[in-house]
Design a protein around this nucleic acid. Structure first.
Lengths: 339, 339
DNA sequence: CTGAAAGCGCTTACAG
DNA sequence: CTGAAAGCGCTTACAG
């Protein structure tokens, strides 16, 4: 049995309520007795029991992070882990804990989220993905469980708390960057174009081309989640001739990295023959050879803002559907060159 | 205010203790009243408050997962996330929750772990790394907080619960595999050779060469966490001439992938010129071109076994320092060829 | 400025 | 087979 507030009270010769109040640094307790109580706490190594506190406060000071159902997509893993780390960091700062909810199927995930929510183990959730017809999001929304989304919701957009980048503009900026360098044949390579983020970047890319008066060629858009053989064939069609695209917008740094490799199969070098711009400005962008020009999305702020907003919403018990759009920024490195 | 056990009791016309007992399907309650109570629960949507239960049971049914202090190492992220997912899955199964502890510095991590442990928010921890002189592990050990490690401990080896592979033998098997294919110049490329896992694989590699009567050349071992310039130079020394290594043991699939790319700079192809074997049998191994021969470490069992062992230890309140070593297995694909 | 008491939502001896 | 009561470790009106 650990040392409790009673032990402190007895040893300090005060009531437990006094101990509790000095714990909260209540102004109604004299400095003198607070000092004394604190000394005793140190001496006997007292640590408040957060479970008990949670029971009376009806709050857990923990937020749940919902990971998407794993689709074996390896590329995103590194992104999710850094999200988790960012959330964890912001939570530490705010004296909150983070629990994770995950599942191999949607039903499993939902179950996990439900027991966490209804068991009163978390005060709210952060959803790390945005998907169409998602049962988990539907549940949270219907049951009015406080939650925030990182990314742009499919549904209930006006009623939801979320933090995101403007991925349409980001996609547009990426394409424009290449256009300004004189490239005219520009391909878009993305992972799973059904995802909201990717869709938006694609949309921005399309807009940029249109505004530049270039015709939008569907052949130039390839989804790498295609079956392997189809994907290879697409790549062959794109690069196995002289009229290949000289610019590539890759929806993620890792995809950009992969493209550098794919291109080498066709004897094409980056940036000598093809310019590539990626997204996320991840560590991979810095480590790549050549170093990757990439769009920085300020993911650190993305996570910390989400945490702050969610906690605010929980504590204020108000449900203003704040949306927060963070800016992005092109980080120029060596993977792009004037044509 | 959510619906509580009292509401159920009143509506069902029984005492709260009876409700509590039917919750646990106690045999001392008649089937008839259990049925009735359950019906009421369904009707009014009762869900037990886990915090309250935790307070009386002095247990939280949650385990903390400790991530290593981030060193910006991107390669491992994908590994950690899959570990987290595995742990989460096993915990779901065992009706436990998982909280994560992380930090940007060791002090921050320790603080996070301490508040979780001493605040009674977790029943035990799983440590995802093994490092020399680690304050967190030291703390857990000294305070006798229940914990399990995935990987091999540096210290207290005989007093610690851990689940691991035999990485020495795995490293040896990897090297032997290449030796059997006729390769004699075999390099070892690893991330951070100060890490226990990598050290052990390296040790096994060394043993294999020795037993084959080959001289062990320190030039053949390169740590990719070296400063960029040094790393490049090492690679140049290794591959920029005719007498290059024809076999590579890469400590991770992602490193193997990277090597394929590095080799292409020197006009070397895999497996035509150089054979490569990786570790983890990750999704990257399957997606690579050529597909990667890799050592499968059964990471799924690694995580689930760790969870089961830890929960057992917590529930049994015994501290038998079980070690569990899981087997590994070479998955042959296309990245290795007879010399 | 401080204490006695009630209560957060459960569980579990103890009686019956 | 079931209930009344005490208690888990805190917090917070309410008195004084």
């Amino acid at each position: 049995m650990a040392v409790t507030i009673k032990d402190v009270a007895k040893k300090a010769g005060v009531a437990t309520s006094t101990v509790s109040r000095t714990l909260q640094d209540s102004p109604s307790i004299s400095e003198k007795t607070k000092q004394n109580v604190r000394k005793v706490m140190d001496e006997i190594g007292y640590r408040p029991n957060l479970t008990a506190r949670g029971l009376v406060n009806q709050t857990t000071q923990t937020i749940g992070v919902i990971l998407p159902v794993s689709q074996g997509e390896a590329f995103h893993n590194t992104f999710f882990l850094s999200m988790l780390r960012g959330i964890s960091k912001a939570c530490n700062e705010k004296k909150h804990m983070v629990s994770i909810a995950s599942g191999t199927t949607e039903a499993e995930l939902l179950d996990s989220v439900q027991t966490m929510a209804e068991g009163g183990r978390v005060d709210g959730f952060i959803v790390l993905y945005s998907r169409k017809d998602d049962a988990v999001i539907e549940y949270l929304y219907q049951e009015q469980v406080p939650f925030a989304m990182i990314g742009k919701p499919y549904k209930y957009e006006n009623a939801m708390l979320y933090v995101d980048n403007d991925n349409v503009v980001a996609g547009k900026d990426a394409a424009n960057y290449l256009l300004q360098l004189g490239h005219e044949k520009i391909a878009f390579i993305g992972e799973d174009t059904k995802q909201m983020v990717i869709r938006e970047r694609l949309k921005g890319y399309t807009q940029a081309l249109e505004e530049a008066g270039l015709e939008m060629n569907p052949e130039m858009v390839v989804d790498i989640t295609l079956p392997e053989a189809d994907y290879r064939e697409k790549m062959r069609q794109l690069f196995d001739h002289d009229d290949f695209p000289t610019g590539i917008v890759a929806s993620d740094d890792l995809i950009a990295l992969n493209m550098i490799y794919v291109l080498s199969d066709y004897g094409l070098k980056v940036p000598a023959d093809v310019s590539i711009i990626g997204f996320n400005n991840s560590i991979f962008a810095e480590k790549a050879q050549p170093e990757l020009t990439s769009i920085d999305l300020h993911t650190d702020s993305l996570t910390s803002q989400t945490v702050y907003q969610l906690i605010q919403r929980i504590e204020a018990k108000q449900s203003l559907a704040v949306k927060m759009i963070l800016p992005h920024q092109i980080i120029e490195r060596q993977s792009c060159r004037r044509k």
